[in-house]
Amino acid sequence: MTATGIDQQIIQYCVQNKDMDKGFDLLMNAYGKRLYAHIRRMVAGEQDAEDVLQETMINVIKSIKDFKNESKLYTWLYTIATRECLKFFKQKKIVLKDFNEANEWLSNSLYAEQSIKAETILVKFHAAILTLPEKQRLVFNLRYFDELSYEDISKITETSVSSLKTNYHYAFEKIKNQLSNAI
């Protein structure tokens, strides 16, 4: 699969120092919001999401010259963003010792930013997503919100399609149960 016209333009601009800012703007306009939403759904906190997006963009600019047109640009971008999210969790887990503590902390950062709206079903839905184990949360987000194919998710997460389907199924059931109990 070759890169589309806009992808080619992004790559061309980003590899040249003089046009890098143009390339960055194009990249952000084409994929920035989607990447930010993906990162935000993974890390919840606004400042954390900004930091992770920034790290993602630094890595994208640094390695875009090595991008091979074997995959779609957005799959490659999602792969880098996902890797940065996982790196972020790894660092957090050193501070927050166990899984429950880490997930509680994620839900708390969501509620902390929602103030009065905190009890709406939308927030509860997202809080339920944040309580999922990392892999299930990742698969659920990429499939449910970004509507990526299992094949693309497989490339991003380097996991088999069958395992992804199982993870998605478990994640969906868990969220459904949590929401039923929450109402």
Partner: peptide
Amino acid sequence: MPYNIEEQEDYLKNNSPY
């Protein structure tokens, strides 16, 4: 009545607390 995420899919997908 339990909240049905399948029925509310459009709302949940198109709105975000973020």
